[in-house]
Structure formats: structure tokens, C-alpha cells
Design a protein around this nucleic acid. Structure first.
Length: 474
RNA sequence: GGCUGGGUAGCAAAUUGGUUAUGCAUCGGCCUGCAAAGCCGCAGAGACCGGUUCGAUUCCGGUCCCAGCCUCCA
């Protein structure tokens, strides 16, 4: 039984979908005014895993990840560049899609954009005004009246009293109450704007997610996710808006992933201490980034460092080395064979059970990965005894890896894969290996070692084994 | 100041009231012409102080430290 940690109650709960067999999953995606950084990569990867695992359990999942394509920061950026804001958003949406594809993120079923949901946003605001949850402020903005929603603060564990004593709230004369937030922002001259019953303007930051999620998944759906920094105020406000407008429970399970940190500090735009996905891809491969993200539980902090990425690289090399040379096109059936095969079947069953109980326990990927290492060890152990059983284990390793979006490359291609810094061509390497093989036949060890050392200096590692010499790039 | 969460071996990172986490690094062995890879094994832990318990890294209390949210943020 899948257990998910629900931010709403701060406990793990058994997951029960609203409609048996189906799951509605909404994740707050990106505001597109710049390239995605590693923190965005973490959200994409974490919820990619949630999506994959739910599907693996047999659920019919509707995964919605929105794009916020109108917002103050976008306008600011467009003004700075002297471009229409749509040019900025189009460019970064394209970049987002490229990064997402590179990282092997499954495409969400729907990817709504805020600017395409203006009518639905206006409807929702209208409904909130009618129900006494919103008002038009003196400056023309439409604001949500936080005191009109008694449950406010439930998600973030804050009471209005707590917020009052919090000394970071700055009073705003246009609002009736300090924590009221803007639903519709009256446009200043030259700003992008849409017509509304309250004059030209644009949506506030939180309303678009309420409108889009409701429109795509209904006004009550299963899982809503995003980065931990969205828990308050963004998600808290979404609840106030949606439940205020429709009067029923909005979302059953709220999931929040932890931050990427650097030097024990949150990686963020405002601190300026971020690496974009593109920058990291100059030095590391996509699968290394994915592995790195999965080494830590999704709710824990993830500390970025090169040594962590190096560790990911070493781990993947170990996995692909284990899979190397195994023909997995036809998986052997080990049923009712020898006692050894029988044992292997039970071992495989045991690995599978452990992997799934790890994943079912709030998506515990570090343990799931530990199981994969155990599979790899068993595979390496058995491969010299019985190749068929090694293949069965290899097939299991690859299959479990697919649930994490890992290990789907051809092992040989991965291990010999394009090095980031270009060095020798494959043909040249093979030529040198030939020369070395000749030298070895005449026991000319000095020459053999010279070639091996020379290749090693160029980042090529040679490994002699029974059927010849294999090589890989470091 | 209010509210969360956390402090685990050289590094990273999980689980668990008593039994090997796992990966990398280190050490010993097997294998190898020598290596590498692989396998076997050793070693190494639970911030600090109390309490509960036959027994605590795990539960409870306190102290210290760290991160996050309370403002835009994934």
C-alpha cells in the first residue's frame, strides 16, 4: 500500500484515490522568465518519479504541470530586454522543454499556461466576490479577504495570530487586512493587460494555479505538488481560493520537495547562488543529474557539489558495467529449472519486493537505489557461474531502473559514451588496443603497459577479460 | 520573534528499540603477466546531557548547532 507524506497533516498516509484506479496530479511548474536551474530540475525529476511510480502501480494518472507565463518578473525581464513579454516566455518555454527532454522527464499529460486561462480565472474571481471572499480595493486591484476563510493557515501550520507576530509582514494601505493577497492586478499604462469586469489588468500570482488545476482536474483532486517554498503562501492561497470559490475540499494530498542547497544554503534566484541545468550539463550527463537527485529523499535537502556528481557518475558506471555484455533482448525463463534457478527466482522476487516497499514508503529512492546495488552485486556474482541467471538479474535491474528513469541506455554506449572533453576517436582507440593485444601475445609487457598508460592519460580505461579487452571513457 | 524540519561512520545517504543498509574512499584476500573491473572479508557511526527500558542511534525531556518558511522563489 502506497504511503505518501501529506504536508496538510504532516504525516504519512495510505494513498486512496478519489476515483478508484485514477489519479489527478497537479504540480506547480515554472515561471518562465529565465533558464531552469537545478532546483527546477529537482521538482521535475521528483514528480517524474511520482508519475512513473503511480503509473507502475497501474493507476491511470492525469499529470498536469502548469506554466506561469504572465507575472511581474516576466514583465520586468521583457522591459529590460526591450521585447514583448510573449517573446521572453516563448523562448524560455522552449528552453524548459529542451531541458526537460534532456533529463528524460516524461511529458505531463497537460501543460496549461496562465494566459490561456484568463476566462476561467475571471470566473473564479467573480465567484469569490459573490461568495464574500474577495473585494475590489481602492487602487482597483481585486483582493482575497483572508479573514473570510477560517481554515486559512491549515496547510502551512500557521495561524493568523502567528503571522501577525511574524515581523516580516509589511502593511499595505490598499488591503483591508495585511495578509490579503491580490487576485486581479489593475494594469498600469504599457503593461500587458486583459479586460475584466474590474478594468484592464492581469491575474495575481496564486489564482492561475487554482483556475488551471480546477479546470484540468476538477475542483477536488488527488495530489498537488511543488517545491517546499510554495507551501506558504502560494499553496495556502490556492486552498483559500479554490475552497472559497467551490465550497468543497480542494486537494487530498499535498506533496512538497526539499531544496537544493549549495554550501548548506538554499539555491535560489534571489541569492544568486544557482547553477542552471545547462551549466551542469556542460560537465555532467543527464542521467548523472537524475541519479544525483534521487540519492536523497525528496523531502530532504539536496546538497550540490561536484563530488556528489562524481559519485553519481561512479555509481552509474558500476550499474552499466554490471549490465555490460548481457543480451537482454530475450529474457530467459528460469521457471522449474535447476535448484540454482529456483534460488535466483526467489532472490529476484525478494529484490522486487524490497524495491517496491521502498518506493511505496513515500517514494524512498535512496533505499530503492540501495536495492539496485544489491541486484548488481548478485548479478556480478552469478555471471561467471550461469549467464542465463545473470541475464535474468540484468533484466530485473533494468526494469526496476526504468521506474526511476535510470539505466535505459545501451551499456556499451553509455560506458564508451561521448566524453565531455573530446579526446581520441573510437577507431583510434581500437587500433591502439589491437597493437597492445599483439604486444601481449608476445609477452611484451612493457609495450602493452605503455599503451594502456597512454590511453589512461587520455581518459580511456582498458580492462582485460576472458574474451578480450574492453574499454570505457572516464 | 513565531512556525517547520534536521544533526548518522572519511564523504554522501537510509532504515531500525536488540540482528550487514547502500555507494564512494581506505585496508586485507581472491582473480590478473601486472592492472582495471568483479567477488569475498576487515574496519569505521549515530551532536551533547539526562530519563524510560533487560537493552536506544531509534522513544521522552533538556542543551547546543544547522537549514527552511513567515517577502519573490521549485
Amino acid at each position: 500500500m502506497l504511503q505518501i507524506y501529506n504536508s496538510l497533516n504532516r504525516t504519512k498516509e495510505p494513498f486512496k484515490p478519489i476515483t478508484p484506479g485514477k489519479v489527478g496530479l497537479y504540480v506547480c511548474g515554472m515561471t518562465v522568465y529565465d533558464y531552469c536551474h537545478l532546483g527546477h530540475a529537482r521538482v521535475m525529476i521528483v514528480f517524474d518519479i511520482v508519475y512513473r511510480y503511480l503509473k507502475n502501480l497501474g493507476y491511470k494518472v492525469t499529470y498536469v504541470r502548469n506554466i506561469t507565463d504572465i507575472d511581474d518578473k516576466i514583465i520586468k525581464r521583457a522591459n529590460k530586454l526591450g521585447e514583448p513579454f510573449t517573446m521572453v516566455t516563448e523562448r524560455f518555454i522552449q528552453a524548459l522543454h529542451e531541458d526537460s527532454r534532456t533529463l528524460g522527464i516524461l511529458t505531463p499529460d497537460q501543460e496549461p499556461k496562465a494566459t490561456e486561462y484568463i476566462p476561467q480565472i475571471l470566473d473564479m474571481i467573480q465567484s469569490l466576490i459573490q461568495r464574500g471572499h474577495a473585494y475590489v480595493a481602492a487602487n482597483g486591484d481585486v483582493c482575497y479577504s483572508v479573514p473570510s476563510f477560517p481554515k486559512y493557515g491549515q496547510l502551512s501550520g500557521k495561524s493568523l495570530e502567528d503571522l501577525k507576530v511574524g515581523h516580516r509582514v509589511e502593511p499595505d494601505a490598499t488591503k483591508k487586512y495585511p495578509f490579503d493577497f491580490v487576485l486581479w492586478k489593475a494594469a498600469k499604462p504599457e503593461e500587458p493587460a486583459w479586460d475584466s469586469p474590474w478594468g484592464a489588468g492581469r491575474p495575481g500570482w496564486h489564482i492561475e494555479c487554482s483556475a488551471m488545476s480546477t479546470h484540468c482536474l476538477g475542483n477536488h483532486f488527488d495530489i498537488h505538488g511543488g517545491g517546499a517554498d510554495l507551501q506558504f503562501p502560494h499553496h495556502e492561497n490556492e486552498i483559500a481560493q479554490s475552497e472559497g470559490a467551490y465550497g468543497n475540499t480542494f486537494v487530498n494530498v499535498w506533496m512538497h520537495n526539499g531544496f537544493v542547497q549549495i554550501d548548506s544554503e538554499k539555491m535560489s534566484k534571489s541569492l544568486g547562488n544557482f547553477f542552471t541545468i545547462r551549466e551542469i550539463l556542460e560537465h555532467y550527463r543527464p542521467e548523472e543529474i537524475r541519479y544525483f537527485v534521487l540519492t536523497s529523499h525528496y523531502r530532504s535537502p539536496l546538497n550540490y557539489s561536484n563530488s556528489q556528481l562524481e559519485n553519481a557518475k561512479a555509481a552509474l558506471t558500476r550499474f552499466y558495467t554490471a549490465l555490460r555484455g548481457l543480451d537482454l533482448t530475450q529474457v530467459p525463463n528460469l521457471d522449474n529449472q535447476t535448484q540454482l534457478a529456483d534460488t535466483t527466482n526467489r532472490v529476484i522476487e525478494d529484490f522486487r519486493t524490497r524495491f517496491h516497499s521502498a518506493m511505496a514508503d513515500d517514494f524512498n529512492t535512496p533505499i530503492a537505489l540501495a536495492v539496485l546495488f544489491d541486484v548488481a552485486r548478485e548479478l556480478n556474482r552469478i555471471r561467471n557461474i550461469d549467464l542465463n541467471q545473470a541475464r535474468a538479474l540484468g533484466s530485473e535491474l533494468k526494469q526496476l531502473g526504468s521506474i526511476l528513469g535510470l539505466l535505459q541506455d545501451d551499456p556499451e554506449a553509455y560506458l564508451q559514451g561521448t566524453a565531455i572533453t573530446n579526446n581520441l576517436t573510437d577507431a583510434k582507440i581500437l587500433e591502439l588496443i589491437d597493437q597492445r593485444t599483439t604486444a601481449r601475445k608476445t609477452k611484451n609487457w612493457a609495450e602493452a603497459d605503455r599503451i594502456r598508460d597512454m590511453l589512461k592519460n587520455q581518459g580511456i580505461v582498458l580492462e582485460d577479460n576472458a574474451d578480450g579487452t574492453s574499454w570505457r571513457r572516464l
